[in-house]
């Protein structure tokens, strides 16, 4: 490929790669607030399935099970709460980690229980953007490898 000169592509990759991995995420703009979400859990989904907060927010999740006992385990934060029908369970924490975090049912509730999953976004999802950048960069790297 003529347009890709021999030296600058590897140099670009060598610079951009680590930068993409290591660059610190920009600091959040919005001031932290208190937020409360009511999440309904029933086999095998959460309503709403996705939540979004800002970094630093004080988040309270009110888990309400409408059919059987369900739980909510938040990946990355390693927090867990369980709720039986008729009782609201609460989980309060500070959203001090940025990114997208899956939450999953922690009480065996039926066949699809391991796949009962929701999502909490805290600020922008830098991991995804970094990942997309890395994938694009990796494709350039793959194209530029000589002597394969």
């Amino acid at each position: 490929m003529r347009m890709i000169r021999r030296w600058w592509l590897p140099a670009l990759i060598a610079l951009l790669g680590p930068a993409l991995v290591l660059a610190p995420a920009p600091l959040p703009a919005a001031p932290p607030t208190d937020r409360t979400f009511r999440i309904e859990a029933r086999s095998f989904e959460y309503t709403p399935p996705t939540l979004a907060v800002n970094p630093g927010d004080r988040v309270t999740l009110e888990l309400v099970s409408t059919d059987a006992a369900h739980g909510l385990y938040l990946d990355g934060y390693d927090l867990n709460v369980t709720a039986v029908p008729g009782q609201t369970a609460r989980l309060t924490f500070t959203a001090d980690k940025t990114g997208s975090f899956r939450f999953r049912c922690s009480v065996t509730c039926g066949p699809l229980h391991p796949f009962m999953i929701g999502k909490l976004s805290v600020g922008p999802n830098w991991l995804l953007w970094r990942g997309l950048g890395l994938a694009a960069l990796a494709s350039l790297a793959g194209l530029s490898v000589t002597r394969t």
């Binding site: 994938a135 694009a136 990796a138 494709s139 350039l140 790297a141 793959g142 194209l143 490898v145 394969t148």
Partner: peptide, 8 residues
């Protein structure tokens, strides 16, 4: 992706 590009 990198490996796929190299192969392509």
């Amino acid at each position: 992706v990198g490996w796929a590009s190299l192969t392509a």
